[in-house]
């Protein structure tokens, strides 16, 4: 039995939970290849025209998996923290995919909504487990493995590893030390995990910054308790799970980490980002240190030049401001 997981959207948040769980059930996990042009082209063909590029890409990943697996795992993610909801497109994802792509294998699309209580995750995993085995003990063991692996993953992210580095570390046990260049500038790169850590769709933004010798911090590196503390700064928080984490981590980086600049990566036409982008911009603008801010918009176009020009100029601006040139 092979279960397919698309390498995008919640993948960068939850894959270390799903993988050991399915393996514990004795199921093979198949992940779609890293995003590439052919995959995006396929996704653009299959998806409704108005969707944002991450959703189009998701369709491409599903199309790449559909003939290689027996079951597609695509849970209907409603809430991951018990308070805030994921973007509506996450909620409708299984339906969108069913309507757009033909010839799909069985889809597991159980609802995961932690607003129903903390134990909901275990009830969810138990239901999924029952699809594969009748052995209660086997499911409970798989849940335990998943939990253990997931908390290790969270710890690695807090140490400053990117999700890909953390995946490698969990697989091989080798732990790379994040390079820190103390004399250099430090930038907060904000955005949703599926935009930031997908090298294709972000046109290699993180690597580009690294090649300029910039230290990069991202929302995944912020401890949960700090996010919670920052959430009290706003009179009212946003509806959306990932958007809130972007805004809170922005506040954290500005208040506690002395970042030199903030880059917000947003997908063209993203609804939740209409609010998020403005909130983040205002945070930087009204900071006493007047932190430079840049919005990078990603879309289907493959031209890296536009992004490269803006990012290069942005890094120049900060270097000159700090008198490093």
């Amino acid at each position: 039995m092979r279960v397919g997981i698309p390498r995008t959207l919640s993948f960068f948040t939850l894959y270390p939970l799903w993988k050991p769980f399915f393996e514990g059930l004795g199921v093979d996990v198949v992940v779609s290849p890293e995003s590439n042009k052919a995959l995006l082209d396929e996704g653009v063909r299959e998806t409704v025209n108005d969707a944002c590029v991450p959703i189009k890409l998701f369709h491409g990943h599903v199309a790449a998996l559909k003939n290689k697996v027996d079951i597609l795992f695509m849970p209907r993610l409603v809430s991951l923290d018990g308070k805030h909801t994921l973007c509506p497109k996450f909620l409708g994802l299984p339906d969108m995919v069913r309507c757009s792509i033909s010839g799909l294998p069985e889809i597991i699309d159980f609802r995961l909504d932690l607003k129903k209580g903390k134990l909901e995750l275990y009830r969810f995993l138990y239901r999924v487990g029952q699809r594969f085995t009748a052995s209660r003990a086997k499911i409970i063991r798989a849940i335990w493995l998943a939990r253990h692996n997931f908390s290790r993953y969270r710890k690695l992210l807090l140490q400053g590893l990117t999700p890909q580095e953390a995946f490698n570390c969990l697989d091989t046990g080798y732990e790379p030390q994040p390079e820190k260049n103390m004399s250099s500038i430090r930038l907060a790169v904000l955005g949703y995990p599926y935009s930031l850590y997908d090298n294709y769709i972000s046109v290699g933004l993180l690597e580009k910054l690294k090649s300029y010798g910039v230290n990069v911090v991202t929302p995944e590196m912020v401890p949960e308790r700090e996010l919670k503390r920052m959430s009290k700064n706003l009179p009212k928080n946003l509806f959306w799970y990932y958007s809130n984490r972007v805004v809170w981590s922005c506040m954290y980086f500005l208040q506690k980490q002395n970042v030199d600049g903030v880059i917000h990566v947003t997908a063209f036409g993203c609804g939740p980002d209409a609010m998020t982008n403005k909130l983040v911009e205002l945070e930087t603008k009204y900071n006493p240190r007047k932190i430079p801010f840049l919005t990078v918009t990603i879309d289907e176009h493959t031209g890296e030049v536009g992004v490269a020009t803006r990012v290069e100029a942005f890094v120049d601006l900060i270097r000159r401001k700090k008198g490093m040139v």
Partner: peptide, 11 residues
Amino acid sequence: GIVVDFAMNTV
């Protein structure tokens, strides 16, 4: 004399 902000037209 130092650039503090810039913007370019989008698409």
